[in-house]
Design a protein around this nucleic acid. Structure first.
Length: 283
DNA sequence: CTATTTGTTTATCC
DNA sequence: AGGATAAACAAATA
């Protein structure tokens, strides 16, 4: 489910525990989310350390703990984060729970397309199993985090990057292009459809058919949708206004919300993903 | 019982 | 080499 705005919302759910010690870590050893870092390693790395807070980058999450411990996370299709009372009895899909004096921080993911990773990073940024010395400088994030592409709302995300990518993948449908996390981190299925719809461009259109002005429009629409989604959904999961395609895309018989269009929306498969478009205003 | 799902990775072919 | 494509992963919900 989660795209960049939902991921940001989930990140915030653990924030109230900033500064709290992790007394106990509950991890289901057989869960597929531990396919990279075994549950035992996650427990060992986090138990007894202090939770220092989290950050989001597109669909990626990174939580920091004292003494250079970092918990990486991807929510997959069905992952979600929430805070519960500290005496919570874990439910079936609660694959990871961090128990602090005040709360139980839960990662729940019934489909288990999500994953967690854990890494201990030395004060010089090198991965190491030894905790840094007392009074050491704060550790840097793991290298994989530092190598992520520029976020869509960051200065590094330029029109030129978008144009170059569209040119290189000229035959790829625009919607498929937008789902590429190496270039558009955090854009998922509904945001990609929303962006194409705002541009009035058919999501099946080859990316190479966009001229310079359409590429610039793409850059703007992508950033506007991201910014507004973060503001509306990322803060408290409010519903976007009905002027957005999103509120109409899943219902059978949905109608295009664009003023003076109101054509029936079409839902069909595009490269394996359900895609919603308006045949009336998207060309 | 069948179809569907807001995601990523991997294998395979070109 | 790198792009295109389909399948695999897994479980709840309609």
């Amino acid at each position: 489910m989660p795209e960049l705005a939902e991921v940001e919302y989930y990140r915030k759910q653990w924030e109230p525990s900033r500064g709290e010690p992790v007394a106990r870590v509950l991890a289901h050893p057989k869960a597929r989310i531990y396919r990279e870092s075994p549950a035992s390693a996650v427990v060992r790395a986090l138990e007894g350390r202090t939770f220092l807070g989290g950050r989001a980058h597109g669909k990626q999450l990174l939580f920091e703990f004292s003494e250079g411990a970092w918990l990486g996370m991807h929510l997959g299709m069905s992952g979600r984060l929430f805070a519960a009372p500290p005496d919570r009895v874990p439910e079936k899909s609660d694959h990871l729970a961090l128990v602090t004096p005040q709360r139980c921080l839960v990662f729940s993911d019934y489909r288990m397309f999500g994953k967690v990773t854990v890494e201990i990073v030395g004060p010089d940024g090198t991965p190491g199993s030894q905790p840094p010395a007392e009074g050491a400088t704060p550790s840097l994030p793991p290298s994989w985090w530092q190598e992520l592409p520029p976020e869509v709302l960051s200065p590094g995300f330029t029109k030129e990057r978008v144009a170059a990518f569209a040119k290189r993948r000229a035959k790829t449908p625009l919607k498929t292009l937008l789902l590429d996390q190496r270039h558009f981190p955090g854009i998922g299925n509904w945001m990609a459809d929303e962006i194409c719809w705002r541009l009035r461009i058919d999501p099946r259109r080859p990316a190479g058919t966009l001229d310079e002005s359409a590429q610039a429009s793409l850059w703007r629409a992508l950033r506007r949708v991201s910014r507004e989604a973060l503001r509306i959904i990322g803060t408290d999961w409010s519903d976007p206004p009905d002027s957005w395609l999103m509120n109409h895309r899943w219902r059978d018989g949905g109608i295009c919300p664009r003023p003076k269009c109101h054509a029936p929306l079409v839902r069909e498969d595009l490269r394996g993903r359900t895609t919603c478009r308006c045949p009336g205003c998207q060309r």
